[in-house]
Design a protein around this nucleic acid. Structure first.
Lengths: 219, 219
DNA sequence: GTAACACAGATAATCGATTATTGGCCGGAT
DNA sequence: ATCCGGCCAATAATCGATTATCTGTGTTAC
């Protein structure tokens, strides 16, 4: 299934930031680059649109979603609204296997370097994936596929937005936040875990507000 | 944009139950029936898959999602988990325009006949739509597109499942439930509204459990 | 000088035909 | 009689070419 490969390639490219928001995704060019036909490329693009990773402008083709501060804030709020509730369910229901996977995911997250020296300011692909897996594993104890799918969609949107938010981290200790999250979850302390998660998500959202509303005001 | 029409047609047909769960959706046949090419049909099918209204079996084509009791229960639980929280936000934030739209949606719901005499046991399209609009309007006060999109996806999945759940309504007064929901929302009584909504969703889910686990055990 | 129109190039959307893969069917061997 | 393996029809997936639509530019009329 060629469209699968093209889809994966485009998803990676968009999430990695190879294209800027608003850039046109021309089926012709993409088809030539990938060495496939138009139909295949179109199929992949339609899928991307379904996942929210591309916009479709009728009779004007496809494009990378344009960054919108408002939309980003709504996604962040949606996560703050939904994830704590699911986390509570997860903590209540998770079994030993879940506990083990949380530990494993946290370990992997801690041991994966977030930045590579030369690469510059952006997270490594490996860390981004470990980060996603940790957050998802925390919720997987709920055992509800529909809820986890909701998480997946919001996470994707959230990551895409963050990629384009030039975040100057206000003294933030992500490592510590994650550790507190892991501890509270494994202690079955739902209240604490939910509170820490909300704070974690709030801080992430706040980092963007600052940058977009006070660009380079360092006085 | 032809694929749009084909998409709309298929969505309606699937939701209406013109195809049974598991039925193959053959691009060839569909293309012939609709008088369009394969590419167009495929594009529509890929969209359907994205919306959860079709399954894709690699190298084996597309099919109507097979009904799964487990999946349905998970969707119902997801709704019970998310919608009350969003309803609270909506009640807290909704403005006068929202109030007016809630009243209008409820009025329309009440005045739309749920069944047509001859048609048999299934809801009319008009009532199903009015029902959806009422529930969605209740949540729209939250003003968060990401959350409403989540609602839309869960609603679609929920409706599709319900279409195939031969629900024998246990003495249920849907009209009354909706009225209590409207009243609590407009009274800004978030606690009551959330509680009524959870009960509403629980009863809907329960109707299916009964039928699938005790098929025709009447005495 | 401005504004409306028409042309041209680019590209989105669609089509009909070709290739590749699947699952069932038949025959032969054990 | 049953099981294994190779044909065959059906159809999924892909392709290259065609048609329709949009955007920008240049021209002409006022």
């Amino acid at each position: 299934m060629l469209s699968e490969q093209v889809y994966a390639h485009l998803q990676g490219a968009i999430m990695r930031g190879d294209y800027a928001p608003g850039d046109a995704l021309k089926p012709q060019d993409l088809a030539r680059e990938q060495g496939v036909s138009l139909a295949v490329t179109r199929e992949a693009l339609v899928r991307l649109v379904g996942e929210g990773l591309a916009d479709r402008l009728p009779n004007r083709g496809f494009a990378v979603p344009s960054f919108s501060d408002r939309r980003w804030q709504e996604i962040a709020e949606a996560r703050r609204t939904i994830e704590p509730v699911v986390l509570r369910m997860s903590i209540e229901r998770g079994d030993v296997d879940w506990e083990a996977r949380v530990r494993a995911a946290h370990h992997r997250l801690v041991r994966t370097p977030a930045f590579v020296p030369k690469e510059g300011e952006h997270y490594t692909d490996a860390w981004a994936e470990a980060h996603r897996v940790f957050h998802r594993t925390l919720l997987e104890g709920c055992g509800n596929h529909a809820l986890l799918e909701t998480f997946d969609r919001l996470w994707t949107a959230s990551e895409l937005a963050r990629r384009w938010a030039a975040h100057r981290n206000p003294d933030r200790d992500g490592v510590k936040e994650h550790r507190r999250l892991e501890e509270a979850a494994l202690d079955r302390d739902a209240d604490t875990a939910a509170a820490v998660l909300v704070q974690h998500l709030t801080l992430t959202a706040a980092a963007l507000i600052d940058d977009s509303r006070q660009p380079a005001q360092q006085g």
